[in-house]
Simulated assay, not measured.
Amino acid sequence: MEAIKKARAILNDVIFGKEEVIDLLYIALLAQGHVLLESVPGTGKTKLAKSFAKVMDGKFGRVQFTPDVLPSDVTGIRFFNPKTQEFELRVGPIASNVLLADEINRATPKTQSSLLEIMEENQATIDGETISIQRPFIVIATQNPVESNYGTFPLPEAQLDRFLFQIDLGYPTLQDDKQILSTYRTTDPYETIKATLSLDDIRHQQAQIKHVHVSDAVTDYLLALVHQSRQHPEVELGVSPRGMLALMRAAQARAAIDNRDYITPSDVKILVPYVFPHRIILTMEGSIKKTRMQIVNEIIEAVPVPVEQVSK
């Protein structure tokens, strides 16, 4: 995992005070998941996604979503070439290793849905032709809080469930702001980023994490958390089987990045606040009294943590 550690260090020199968020991005990459970054404008969501892509020796695609963006602008289109007198397929920005879906909640539901097949199956159907997307492939979507925007379209539950993590960047601390001013006053670290993470390395690590050991105790703990989300009196819809598998794979990736070949309960517990909130729907009474994160914290507190596993 030395290449991953080096890539993380590079990003920490570009985006200050977001070490945990950067770690989550690499966990999602190895777990073959996707990430939804949410925060108010100007907090570095797009900069983080672009920097993450630049560290990789792969192809970067970007879609700036607006209400007039069409599904074909995302996936591609078949057009008539007058020179050859034939229809040709032109694949859109999805033909990349890192796809930045910037301000995804500004797109219409029809355009948002164009990403569903890609995110779940690593393929896209364009005019009846199925195109496979080369791995590694990760969608990093950004959105501003819905309640502070006009002309936005909240992501439906089916699409939210396809994101491994939903991460709130939040504002930097005073010390981080001071470091940003000091560093960016004379230079932009983004300009000096060089690709250090090869696609072959990523594919190898993605295959390796599947062999990270998951003990029976940790499995039972993970399942207890999932089922507690479904049984909570203020939750209408709990975590799906897709979310359950996503949590396990993310925990395996976290353990691998930490140079361990086994998962501990802490791996699971630390990731739950990023995996569960966007996957649960509260009852009407619950949504009036509490936030999703408060409910998730109650779920975590309700499930006893097994003794830490120090080995297989």
Rank of each mutant, 00 (worst) to 15 (best):
M1Q: 11
N12F: 04
E20M: 06
G33C: 01
H34E: 04
E38Y: 08
P41H: 08
K50H: 13
D57C: 10
D57R: 13
V63F: 14
F79E: 10
F80W: 15
K83L: 13
L89Y: 10
R90A: 11
G92K: 00
I94L: 00
K110F: 03
Q112K: 02
L116T: 03
M119H: 07
M119A: 05
E120W: 06
A124M: 00
I126H: 09
S132Q: 14
Q143W: 13
P145V: 06
V146Y: 05
E147H: 06
S148D: 14
E157Y: 12
E157H: 13
Q166F: 08
I167S: 00
I167W: 01
D168G: 13
G170P: 09
L181P: 01
T196K: 09
L199R: 15
D200R: 14
D200L: 11
D200P: 04
D201W: 06
D201S: 14
A207S: 14
V214T: 10
V214G: 01
D216V: 05
A217V: 05
V218P: 00
L223P: 05
A224E: 08
Q228A: 15
M248C: 09
A251L: 06
A253W: 14
I257E: 05
N259Q: 15
D261L: 12
T264S: 13
K269M: 02
F276N: 02
H278E: 04
M284Y: 15
I288C: 04
T291F: 00
I300R: 08
E301C: 02
V303Y: 08
